[in-house]
């Protein structure tokens, strides 16, 4: 088919894609290069890459001195990893029950759990806050982990049960004949087989948790429980006029997500194109 595609059309396709790629990357590029420049250079020539004379790390120095970014980063990491663990474990368990066994109310339970895909958890914020106040969990990371686990479960159950239906019955039945308990079948046979699907779910769950501003702002705004997203928001708000510091803080906030994304991107794209969310 490609042999019949005229070259001019292929050039046009590349032109559009390159243009859009530039639009997508340009803002990130501008922020990162300017974070390494002196204040004067930032304003004189915003689009130039830092050279020997304009290179300056004063922004990073301010950020590291003023904000407790390491603590924020650790908080974000703790919350994201813990929520991810619970979403994947609980989600896979429920998905297994729904896809493997026929029982009364199976369909209804599936629909009940899928409801959360369409209805955002934020609408329950008023009552969630009251619940957390009543149980003394305000300003703890536990509150965030609980909320994010609940938030991530519906999509995880949905995607994972689609995948688990494809695991061969013969394999599971062979396990049963060999005397494996249902728990062993789940943990030792099925879980390893759906690892690619787990990675897809992990990426989809991780990005909104890492980037969320709403729940950290409401449930855990204390200094020692701030996540990196909330921390950089507050920091930038205080240092609005210190451009070096703002640009450095933005760059520092971009880097961790970017690294995670580049590690997982192949998995993410494979997961989407494999039909997980079609």
């Amino acid at each position: 088919m490609a042999t019949r595609t005229p070259i001019s059309r292929s050039i046009a396709a590349h032109a559009v894609l390159i243009t859009y790629t530039l639009i997508a990357l340009f803002p990130v590029f501008v922020i990162v290069i300017n974070s390494f420049k002196s204040r004067r250079a930032i304003f004189n020539d915003p689009l130039a890459v830092p050279t020997a004379e304009t290179f300056d790390l004063v922004g990073y120095a301010t950020v590291l001195k003023q904000g407790d970014f390491f603590q924020y980063f650790l908080n974000s990491m703790t919350v994201t990893v813990a929520s991810l663990f619970f979403v994947l474990l609980f989600g896979a368990m429920a998905a297994f029950a729904l896809s493997e066994y026929r029982f009364k109310g199976n369909l209804l339970m599936g629909l009940y759990l899928a409801l959360g895909i369409m209805i955002p958890i934020r609408l329950g914020t008023v009552a969630i806050l009251q619940l957390m106040v009543a149980s003394g969990l305000v300003n703890t990371l536990t509150a965030l982990v609980l909320v994010y686990t609940a938030q991530g479960l519906p999509l995880a159950v949905f995607i994972l049960s689609e995948f688990m239906r494809q695991v061969s019955d013969d394999l599971k039945n062979a396990g049963r004949i060999d005397g494996l308990s249902e728990y062993r079948i789940f943990f030792t046979l099925v879980l390893p087989l759906v690892r690619p699907a787990m990675a897809t779910v992990a990426v989809f769950t991780m990005i909104p948790i890492w980037n969320d501003l709403w729940f950290p702002l409401i449930l855990a705004p204390a200094e020692e429980t701030k996540t990196i997203t909330l921390g950089s928001q507050v920091f930038i708000g205080q240092f609005v006029t210190n451009w070096n510091a703002v640009l450095a803080a933005l760059s520092l906030a971009i880097v961790p997500v970017m690294v995670l994304y580049l590690i997982f991107s192949r998995q993410l794209i494979r997961g989407i194109t494999a039909g997980a969310v079609k």
């Binding site: 029950a97 959360g116 008023v126 619940l131 479960l153």
Partner: peptide
């Protein structure tokens, strides 16, 4: 009675109901 079915479902249903569905209706 196949106890493993509710056991597999329980953690997800409990967290989801307690943190998402009940607060939604409470709101």
């Amino acid at each position: 009675f196949r106890w493993h079915i509710p056991l597999f479902l329980a953690p997800a249903v409990l967290v989801y109901t307690a943190i998402m569905i009940l607060p939604l209706f409470a709101t």
